[in-house]
Design a protein around this nucleic acid. Structure first.
Lengths: 137, 137
DNA sequence: AATAATTAGTTTCCCTAACTAACTAATAAA
DNA sequence: TTTATTAGTTAGTTAGGGAAACTAATTATT
């Protein structure tokens, strides 16, 4: 099989098993990957509006609205209005920051475990290649 | 950021844009990625039972039942009983084989385009690494 | 200043893909 | 010949996603 086919085949084959395991970890804090992904974003990049989150995550705004609503219910994020009163700025709550740290540790462990036996160089090649593909999508 | 985090971040970031584009291609034959994925499997590996498909795809049987039902409605696969009359053996229909070939071309083109500028060696590293990770999941 | 257009986010409604639990029918084991 | 197991289906639920139509706030135009 051609190398590019192998690449995309392996890419797709890995997705569901990976997400399932990740969801199993997240379940301890009643989180799902889509919700976690938003927490990750606003931890890394700081407070963001619904619209910004949608852009970053490549989803439509209604989807983000619902996920953020869920995170508010869980007490992990809080929103406040900006100067422009239409926008809602979303950031981690104190509780959310705590949960972030605890989850982060579990996930670090999980991901480190999965990357065992893969050289630093290989990891970087994979990251670089996937990023390059993303940039064309 | 540590290399393993980069790897998983880029992996996740690429998923939705990729699937969305793929679905856009598949839409011309009223297919979705989940359905296409089954066609791909039974093209590559030959006729398979519902149970086998479920195993390969890492999904539960009810999910496969419905996807196969949809493929039958589309006329792309057909089923026949085995010696064991409980099993249903799923294979591509003539129409399905034709559609497979046409889609395959489009997708090959799409994937080739995405992998342009990525060396053969890099492609193989990505495929190898993702496969290795899958094997631990 | 008043009206029109645009923007941010929400609501409603629908889809796909996934799951579990409970079922039917067929086969295998006791 | 019952009993257990297996293959697939049905029913019901959930998460995540999108499109269309909406409200409220802001900007642009006249």
């Amino acid at each position: 099989m051609e190398s590019y086919k192998q690449l995309f085949n392996e890419y797709i084959a890995m997705y569901r098993p990976y997400i399932n395991k990740l969801n199993a970890l997240l379940a301890s804090y009643n989180l799902t990957t889509a919700q976690w992904s938003i927490m990750l974003l606003i931890f890394r990049e700081g407070a963001k509006t619904i619209g910004d989150i949608s852009l970053y995550q490549n989803v439509e705004k209604p989807t983000t609205t619902k996920l953020v609503q869920k995170l508010i219910d869980l007490g992990y994020v809080e929103i406040h209005a900006g100067n422009d009163k239409r926008v809602k700025i979303v950031q981690l709550s104190e509780e959310g920051t705590k949960v972030y740290g605890q989850m982060r540790e579990k996930i670090d462990h999980f991901q480190k475990d999965l990357s065992e036996g893969i050289s630093e160089e290989e990891r970087l090649v994979v990251a670089k290649v996937l990023k390059k593909i993303s940039s064309k999508l």
